[in-house]
């Protein structure tokens, strides 16, 4: 799956920020260098960005820049991309729409979903992932359990590498795989890939909701 890109010009038009702001945020390390993708187009070289990541990030910056200085914000955003050091209580997860009540009741670390229970990032991130898939109607609650288990077991081994999570079915059987990207996968005809999610993108989304 190709990441959707957005050109610098479109980005500025869409978000209403100026060139000066964009360059300033780059200088302050609010926008990582890797997101500036140079490509040649018919009008010469242009800069592109991964669309979802950059839009999410700019939204965070605009919303938070009144409360935090740019330097403080840079510090928050620059934590290890895949395993940020974040904690949230069950209550917060619900309030900020990170995890729905159904998922929390069923797969939460404390049964009966006490609102005060504290979740670390590796604990609530799998819940967020399946919540997304459940909301999209792509998997069933049982299959969600499989995903949570896989993510919990494999999380440490990923060591912050960018990975995709694939969920696929064949003849009614469902299974999931975590692959480090970039990788191309080819399946036999009977396989239906239900979902392919970039864990890095999802991490960014969660960070955006929590900061």
């Amino acid at each position: 799956m190709e990441r959707e890109l957005i050109s610098k010009k479109e980005l500025l038009e869409l978000t209403g920020i100026s060139y000066g702001q964009l360059y300033r945020w780059k200088r302050k390390r609010l926008i990582p260098e890797e997101w500036f993708i140079r490509k040649s187009t018919f009008t010469g070289q242009e800069t592109f960005f991964p669309k979802e990541l950059i839009l999410g990030r700019i939204d965070q910056i605009i919303n938070k820049k009144d409360d935090l200085s740019l330097d403080e914000l840079a510090e928050k955003l620059s934590q290890s991309p895949l395993v940020p050091d974040m904690h949230a209580t069950a209550g917060e997860l619900l309030e900020r729409n990170i995890v729905s009540k159904v998922v929390l009741d069923r797969y939460g670390i404390t049964h009966g979903s006490e609102r005060g229970a504290v979740y670390s990032f590796p604990e609530f991130f799998p819940l967020f992932v399946i919540d997304q898939l459940l909301a999209a109607g792509e998997i069933s609650l049982e299959e969600g359990g499989l995903l949570v288990e896989t993510l919990n077991e494999q999380w440490q081994k990923l060591e912050g590498k960018p990975c995709d999570l694939l969920f696929f079915r064949k003849m009614g059987l469902s299974t999931c795989v975590i692959v480090s990207v970039p990788a191309e996968l080819h399946f036999d005809k009977g396989v239906k890939v239900v979902a392919r999610l970039s864990l890095l993108d999802l991490t960014e989304q969660v960070k955006g909701k929590l900061i």
Binding site: S18, Y19, G20, G44, Q45
Partner: peptide
């Protein structure tokens, strides 16, 4: 090649 900015006041400049 490219000059981008909010306030640009140029003299004797060649740019694409």
């Amino acid at each position: 090649k490219v000059i981008e900015g909010d306030e640009l006041d140029l003299e004797y400049t060649t740019a694409e």
